[in-house]
């Protein structure tokens, strides 16, 4: 939630600054919203004790991709789909998301390194030289939020923020509306 709450608050603030309204977001018609909830529910089953953690993780990404494709025409969703693809690629290749030691330390989470090694779960593990596409792993340190995120995360959160801002709409400004052109006004400029 350390990443979700600030990004959502920032998106809502930008939406209001553009003249949008949160109520307008309620008019947004996302198809199959339940799939997003189902994707998260599957990942909750990844906690220790869950069965077939990797299968649940992969199935979760497939469900999330279907949700994104079903809503691809909605502003911001194409960015989310790119984020899903990037994260799924690196997770599928490495049977989990490789997390860079440097990113963990630089994000102020050095004390959690041992947790990552001992109990990273199915989704995360400490990156090693055997991991492929390591640059797509959690390599970006966000120190103020104590998070190490991936390029896919950046696309996903960026897309969600764009979706919220666009979904809040924008109040039309009267000054931007062109007055009707008068027939007699044309043709005088050339003299």
């Amino acid at each position: 939630m350390k990443l979700v709450l600030p990004s959502f608050l920032l998106a809502v603030a930008i939406g209001y600054a553009r003249g949008g309204r949160l109520a307008t977001l309620g008019q947004l018609r996302l198809r199959w919203q339940g799939l997003a909830i189902a994707g998260l529910a599957l990942q909750i089953l990844l906690w220790p004790g869950g069965m077939w953690p990797l299968i649940y993780l992969y199935a979760s990404f497939v469900i999330l991709a279907v949700f994104a494709i079903a809503n691809i025409r909605t502003t911001g969703v194409s960015l989310i789909l790119i984020g899903i693809a990037l994260n799924f690629a690196v997770i599928a290749l490495n049977q989990g998301m490789p997390v860079s030691r440097a990113a963990v330390v630089n994000s102020g989470q050095a004390s959690s390194l041992q947790d990552l090694v001992d109990d990273g779960g199915a989704k995360h593990h400490l990156a090693s030289s055997e991991d492929r596409l390591r640059f797509l792993g959690d390599v970006i340190a966000i120190r103020p939020l104590e998070q190490a995120v991936s390029l896919g995360d950046v696309f996903t959160y960026g897309g969600v923020m764009v979706l919220i801002v666009a979904g809040m709409g924008r109040r039309a400004r009267a000054s931007t509306v062109s007055p009707p052109t008068l027939v007699g006004d044309t043709g005088h400029a050339d003299g």
Binding site: L3, A23, I37, G39, V99, V104, Q109, V160
Partner: peptide
């Protein structure tokens, strides 16, 4: 904002939060 409108906004935000958390929570997801 009406209760109905509020519910729609809350459900849309919940779906987006679930999506964001599922795709990329980063280490560590708390």
């Amino acid at each position: 904002m009406s209760i109905r409108s509020l519910r729609r906004v809350a459900f849309a935000l919940a779906a987006l939060a679930a999506l964001a958390l599922s795709v990329g929570a980063g280490w560590r997801p708390n």
